Amino acid sequence: MPMPAPSRHILLASACLAGGLLAGPAFAQHTTVYGVIDGFAGSIRTESPGAPAVSRTVVDSGGMQTSFVGVAGAEDLGGGLKAVFQLEAFLRNDTGAAGRFDGDAFWARSAAVGFEGGFGRTTFGRNTAPYFVSLLEFNPLADSFVFGPMIAHTFRGTLAGDTGMSNSIRLQTAGRGPWRSDLLWSAGEERGTQPDRKRGRAFDGVIHYGSGPFAASLAYRSIDLSGTLAPGDGREQKAWLLGASYDLKAAKLFAQYQDIADSGAGPATEVDVRTWQLGASVPLGPGKLLASWANSKIEDADPLSSEKRDGWALGYDHLLSKRTDLYAMLYRDALKSPAGPTERVIAVGMRHRF
Rank of each mutant, 00 (worst) to 15 (best):
P2V: 15
L12F: 11
G20T: 06
G24P: 11
P25D: 15
Q29I: 03
H30D: 12
T32R: 12
T32V: 14
G35Y: 06
I37Y: 02
I37G: 07
I37Q: 02
G39M: 07
G39Y: 10
P49H: 01
V59I: 10
G62L: 08
G62R: 04
G63T: 01
Q65R: 11
T66M: 03
S67R: 05
G70P: 01
A74Q: 14
E75A: 15
E75I: 15
L77N: 12
G78L: 02
G80K: 12
L81N: 06
K82A: 06
V84P: 04
V84N: 07
F90Y: 11
L91R: 03
L91H: 10
L91F: 15
R92K: 09
N93E: 08
G99E: 00
G103M: 09
D104Q: 03
W107N: 01
G118E: 13
S134Q: 07
L141W: 01
F145Q: 15
A152W: 11
H153P: 00
T158M: 09
G164E: 14
N167D: 08
Q172F: 03
Q172G: 10
T173R: 11
G177S: 11
W179R: 04
G192D: 09
R201Y: 05
F203D: 09
D204E: 07
G210S: 14
S211G: 08
S211W: 12
S217W: 05
Y220Q: 10
D224R: 01
L225F: 11
G232E: 10
G232C: 10
Q256I: 03
D259P: 00
A261T: 14
G266W: 09
D272A: 12
V273E: 08
T275F: 11
W276E: 05
Q277F: 02
A280H: 01
L284W: 11
G285V: 02
G287K: 03
N295Y: 10
N295Q: 08
E299C: 08
D302T: 12
P303C: 01
L304S: 05
S305A: 13
R309Y: 12
R309F: 14
D310S: 13
L319W: 05
L320A: 11
S321N: 05
S321F: 09
D325N: 14
A328T: 13
K336F: 02
S337N: 15
M350A: 06
M350W: 07
